[in-house]
Design a protein around this nucleic acid. Structure first.
Length: 113
DNA sequence: GGGTTGACCAATG
DNA sequence: TCATTGGCCAACC
């Protein structure tokens, strides 16, 4: 019984809001990683966090979320770089001045447990 | 019901 | 530093 509406699970939606809330909580000039957010919510995995931002992250500063090695989001790295320069986020530049990745050890922000 | 994809991570060479 | 491999979890067709 209980025809559960699997696509209307409140728990899942709560986790999504939790992730979005953490992303919004990232201060300017700082960045976090998908794995950190996944660990902060203690659910799903880094891949699931990426999917959340891809589907419902349009309302949050997704550019402050990068990969574990500091690489930029493969889909919008060019746009993200513009935001990093705007927020003065420490980034690593190439010999030609092209931003390759974020200086993670200097900008790594740990989400509140 | 099952295979593929994806804004991923860690380890290895 | 880069490329490859295996594993992880959820959504899509």
């Amino acid at each position: 019984m209980a025809g559960s509406t699997d696509r209307d699970d409140p728990d899942r939606d709560a986790l999504v809001e939790q992730v979005l809330d953490l992303v919004e909580a990232v201060p300017p000039g700082r960045v976090t990683t998908y794995g950190l957010l996944a660990d902060a919510v203690g659910f799903g995995g880094p891949r699931w966090v990426g999917r959340v931002l891809a589907t419902s992250g349009a309302a949050v500063p997704w550019w402050r979320v990068v990969r574990a090695d500091g690489s930029l989001p493969p889909s919008h790295r060019r746009s993200a770089v513009a935001h990093y320069l705007e927020e003065r986020t420490p980034v690593r530049t190439d010999a030609s001045g092209a931003v390759q990745r974020v200086d993670l050890p200097a900008a790594c922000w740990l989400p509140p447990r």
